[in-house]
Amino acid sequence: MRVTLLGTGDTTGTPTVGCDCETCQLARERDVERTRFSVHVENERTGESLLIDFSPDFRYQFLRDDVPLPDAGIVTHVHFDHLDGLGNAFRVFDSLDIYAADETDPETGKSVAETVADDYHYLRTISVQPTTPLETVRICGLDVTLVPVDHLPLVCYGVAIEDPETGAKLSITGDTSYDVPEKSREVLDDPDLLLADAIVPAHLCSSHPIGGRHEGPDGVPRTFGTKHMTREGALTLADELDASQTRLVHVAHFYPANEAFEAPLAIDGEAYVLE
């Protein structure tokens, strides 16, 4: 299983348009970036590939990293930075299955699958496959499970992907606070690679209107506001999930420049082979 991090940034990416903060300037100087979130997973046994989330930077990411176009895709939730790249399916694909959760969102009155089907009704090439969370489905020769996470007010899902032949496992937390349900943690547990949402370091919680949440025994918040993990929260979750390797994603340009490009924070273009 080959995993390529096409997009490792939050909703504005790094560098952020119109921003001259030290972090964005340093990203330009180093010629590194974090575009909007997307992960490419290639099953090298079958020659098929799966895309997790459709970044608005879809076209640029695929041209830059020269990975195969996906044979199927997953949409974790309906925020624009994870969904709006699906419009690139126009004239690019002959057909494309899109897997998305079938649970009704109390906020919208529709499931993620229904929202995708409604918003992209004009794309004759896509076929939305409503998928029940916590039930494993075979996609591109890989065992894929959507797991509910905590990204209120909308429903959102993490993803566990396992190769049934090699046992290699990728877990993606999705956009979430530290309050990931126990059943979801059980599915995400023991990955070879964990991609964990870590939008900012915990010390920036003081700048959020409602601060931080889910403080650890040391008083350090593991959630920034209500919807995303801090770096410290993501690393705590990684330890609890017994991840062999962890990369932090959905990273904002608010990280101070001297912290913004330090491990384990990911940047675009990183690739991992899980065996």
Rank of each mutant, 00 (worst) to 15 (best):
A160P: 08
D118M: 10
L50M: 05
S244M: 08
G219N: 08
G211M: 08
D242N: 14
G85D: 11
V147L: 01
R2Q: 14
D268C: 05
D53G: 02
E275K: 06
L274C: 12
T236C: 15
P164I: 08
C19F: 07
Q61P: 08
V78N: 05
T136F: 09
G167Y: 07
L86K: 08
G174M: 02
E240F: 01
G219H: 05
D97P: 13
L195M: 09
G225C: 08
D53H: 00
L26M: 03
R64V: 09
E135N: 10
F90A: 14
D239F: 10
P264N: 06
V67Q: 14
A260G: 10
V67T: 09
G7L: 03
T35I: 13
T35V: 12
D239K: 10
I199P: 04
V273L: 15
L6S: 05
V67H: 13
P68W: 07
L51V: 15
M229C: 04
R64L: 07
F37A: 11
D66T: 13
T166F: 07
L170P: 05
V128K: 06
L188T: 00
F90Q: 15
E275D: 14
T104D: 07
V144M: 08
L274I: 14
V137A: 12
F90S: 13
D65Y: 15
I52R: 11
T226G: 00
E165H: 11
D190H: 06
E270M: 13
T12C: 08
V17K: 09
V249F: 00
G18Y: 01
S111K: 02
Y157W: 15
T35A: 11
T4V: 13
F54V: 07
E29C: 01
H250V: 05
